[in-house]
Design a binder for these strands. Sequence first.
DNA 1: CCCCCTGGGCTAACAGTGTTAGCTACGGAT
DNA 2: ATCCGTAGCTAACACTGTTAGCCCAGGGGG
Lengths: 205, 205
Amino acid sequence: MSAAGGAPTPVSALAPALPLPRTAPRPEPPVRSPRATEIVEAAQRLLETEGAESLTMRRLGEVLGIRAPSLYKHLPGKPAVETALIETALWGIGDALHRVVDAAGPGDVVGRLLAEYRRFALARPNLYRLVAADPIGRADLTPGLEGWSGEPFYRATAEPYVAQALWAAAHGTVTLELSDRFLPGSDLDRTWAALARAFTAHAGD
Amino acid sequence: MSAAGGAPTPVSALAPALPLPRTAPRPEPPVRSPRATEIVEAAQRLLETEGAESLTMRRLGEVLGIRAPSLYKHLPGKPAVETALIETALWGIGDALHRVVDAAGPGDVVGRLLAEYRRFALARPNLYRLVAADPIGRADLTPGLEGWSGEPFYRATAEPYVAQALWAAAHGTVTLELSDRFLPGSDLDRTWAALARAFTAHAGD
DNA sequence: CCCCCTGGGCTAACAGTGTTAGCTACGGAT
DNA sequence: ATCCGTAGCTAACACTGTTAGCCCAGGGGG
């Protein structure tokens, strides 16, 4: 991800930019062989239905009617599978968030952005957890993808560092909600509302 | 962790509470045998100096001049080691944050709280990453520890849901900073400043 | 003094992980 | 008809956490 816009956006821009412009174009998905695509799709199904600890090369081969070592004829290894899954997640989040900002009705873009971010993650908990799991082979990710998928936060806040903070806050909140780390009995709707309020209330300062 | 105070604090309290009260007492650390304590300390050193992937039972035994299976005479397994490390981290964070709130000079408690949270995590990156790594054997944690260690956020905001949101935001930002997930070239000081501003500016609304 | 028993080490082993090497069968191109 | 790449296979390696079972030193009770 990484909010704060793509390459052409100068980081120091305190921009007015009310029409919520797009700056970075949607990056091109990488070309994969048909079989490799099948494998990645099977991996996604496996991850969502059985959880991360079931996403093993042997198990993945099994659901494909294949032995584990044969997977290496199509993909270089397990990190590649995970990277592919992370990428589909980033494309999904990016598309969903850009859509929200595109349909910018009158007020509270931030609130709707946060709601959509939350909705997406809760709908695919295991996928989001995978994205959140630290290391992420930055170098192997499609260039520009992280920036593009975080860009809606910039479009909504029009200030790069507020955008980064908002993105990080959303990420943290959703992570904790997925891990069930908030005090039991908390009304998470109100937590999200408090977060939206913090980033909305004081438009000019 | 988990902000929003301990048991006696009614969640609905929109409290005035300006003297920044403490609600939950500091929980008692669990009693461990001397040898078990040695092992946990060695694990912490190992984690910080060599990283999470080196924190293996065989390697841990090695630095203690012991074979891996012997560790099981003192601790029930690797999850127990990790839980112990997580607990020391939570105690550390809790102590540091409570100290900040105790020394409450005039303004910007939130800013100083965030700064301390960040400082702590960056000083022990691998330890913090371990805490952030999802599953956390909630049941095996010292009761009340999570609530107590997040309580300073409540003391600083005096509203449980704002506290949760602030804590989550801090967690997310520090996680992304540790994983180097922000756009390269970003001035993270400004991101943190933007976060503090969001949770400070509008005191009353 | 001897016995017993417990604490804390050991080796061997198991099941599981990602991954590599080397073999083989099929299918399309020359 | 021959070649060769594609895509499967088995065997194996090095690693993980973990269990079973053995063994030896030290201390207390008869």
